[in-house]
Structure formats: C-alpha cells, structure tokens
Amino acid sequence: MSTDQTKIAVDYTEAAEKLKKILNLKGSPVAIRFAPTKVDIPAGMVELDKTIRHCSMVNLARTEGKIFYAPADKHECNGGAWSLGLRGITPTLKNGEFYFKLGKFDSAAACKRTIERIPHLDTGETYATLYAPLEKTPFSPQVIVIVTTPRNMLKLAQSSLFRLGGRIHAEFSGIQSVCADATAQTYLSGQANFSLGCDGSRRFSGIGDDEMVMGFPAEMLPEIIAALSIVIGAAGSK
C-alpha cells in the first residue's frame, strides 16, 4: 500500500462523530482516495460488485456505511470516470454533443466551452477510487465529501475561513457536481469547494432538494473541526 499519509495524525473516527453531531448530519462524511495502481488499495478492501456512478458510490458510503473501491469498469458515468482520471474523455463529451442533446445548453459550442473548463485528473492517473464513511475509513483520505443543508454549508464555509480569512471562490457549472466539483476540483486545487449538485447526482445519489455538496482536502479536517463549534456558538451566529 502507498505510504502517502498525512504527517499530522488525525483520528478520523472522532472527527467524523464531531461533524455528525455538530451539524446533525443525516449520513456520514465520505472519505475518498485515488489509487494510482492496484497495489495502492489497502488489504481487505473489496471491489464494488456493480456498475454505478461516482455520486452513487459516495451515497453508498454516506448512507449505508459501505467501504469499497471502484476501478474504471465499475464507473457507469463517462464524465465522472474522465474527471477522476479513470478513463479518457469520450468524443461526444469533448465536442459538446452529449450535454447538448440532454438540453443543458443552447448550443454544442456552449457545452464544449464548459467541458473544457471542468477540472479533471490526467487520464490513466487513477486505477481505482476508494470510498468509506469517514468514521470507518481504512485508508488516509485525500478528499472528504459532505452532503448537507445550506445552513450547514454556511457554517462549513465560515469554518474554512476561520483561521486565515479571505474569500471562497466556489467552482461549479451545474453538471458533474460530485465527481468534478467536489472531488477532482478539491483534490487538484487543495481548497474547499461548494456545489449545488447536478441533475444526475440528485437523481441517482440521494441528494435532497434541500441539500448541497461540499468537498474539502483531508488536510483541512483538523482546522474545520476546531473552528466549527466556535463558529456555531459565536454571538452573531444563527
């Protein structure tokens, strides 16, 4: 297994329980890791036994407590597999035809401009994606995804700025929300990202109409945990 671990030790079980308690989460925060080769998958982890979308995989870990890995052939969504570095981009996705036919854009050109700006890992960089509820993760996560209410997202946003301040620049386009926005973008940028969810993820992964999606680098977990209770308990907090 890869030795790529964070140098600052984190108790993921304790952190997850704090997040769930403070935010009253419906499910678990989800730990995600990119495995570049098969040997980077921890011993004992099982391969997913069906072919579904990345967002649905996140939901399995979030709501059912499943721990598993998924190589390219278990990823149903071509856009998701491409953004996560598992497969190359398909011709119809690259030229804009795919989303244009779905009615998401006025022209294939508008779609192509959007696709060209979607964050993605290099093709072939990932052998498999690893998933687990944060409190039971058998691997050191690289990205943590949370699905929760806008009010909780406000508190998470405030917590991510608590130590250094600044501004949050969320990146999303209404498509590929959980795969590109919350996972690939977060991993590549090293910054938290917030997304509204997309039609696919809302249809297939159990994201409610009253929920949003956030991804943040696992390295940010200690400071978010430390800030959350302070931010929520602040005099000016609602």
Rank of each mutant, 00 (worst) to 15 (best):
A31Q: 10
E211H: 02
R163P: 00
K112C: 04
A110C: 02
E47S: 00
N24S: 15
T126S: 08
P138L: 07
C77K: 02
N78Q: 13
E171V: 13
S140M: 14
D106Y: 06
M57Q: 13
S159F: 05
F194E: 04
A72L: 01
A70C: 06
N78D: 10
F204P: 00
L154N: 12
R62F: 06
M220P: 00
L102Y: 12
Y69R: 05
F162N: 04
G206H: 11
R151C: 06
R117I: 02
I144W: 05
T3H: 09
K26I: 14
I168Q: 08
K18V: 15
K74M: 12
A72N: 04
I175Y: 09
Q185I: 01
R87G: 01
K74I: 08
G190Y: 10
H75T: 06
R202G: 04
P150F: 12
K50D: 13
G166M: 10
E97N: 10
R203M: 14
S159A: 15
G236F: 13
I144H: 04
A81N: 06
F216W: 10
E47V: 09
L121D: 01
R203W: 07
N78E: 10
N152I: 06
A180L: 10
I146D: 02
G166E: 08
Q191V: 03
K104V: 13
G124D: 10
I230N: 01
I144G: 02
K38Y: 12
E219M: 10
F194D: 05
Q5Y: 11
S2Y: 01
A234E: 15
D49C: 01
F34H: 08
D181L: 06
N24V: 12
F194M: 14
L134G: 07
E211T: 06
S173H: 05
S177P: 05
S195P: 07
H120T: 04
S28Q: 11
A31H: 07
I89Y: 03
D11A: 08
Q158P: 00
G88P: 05
A128Q: 04
I118R: 03
T148D: 14
D209G: 10
G80A: 12
L221Y: 04
E17V: 04
D181F: 07
F204T: 13
I224N: 02
E64I: 01
P150A: 08
G215Q: 03
F98Y: 15
F34K: 01
A70F: 06
Q185G: 12
A110I: 02
V39G: 02
E14P: 02
V30K: 08
K26Y: 13
E64V: 03
T92M: 11
L84P: 00
G233I: 13
A170C: 09
L19E: 04
H54E: 08
L228K: 00
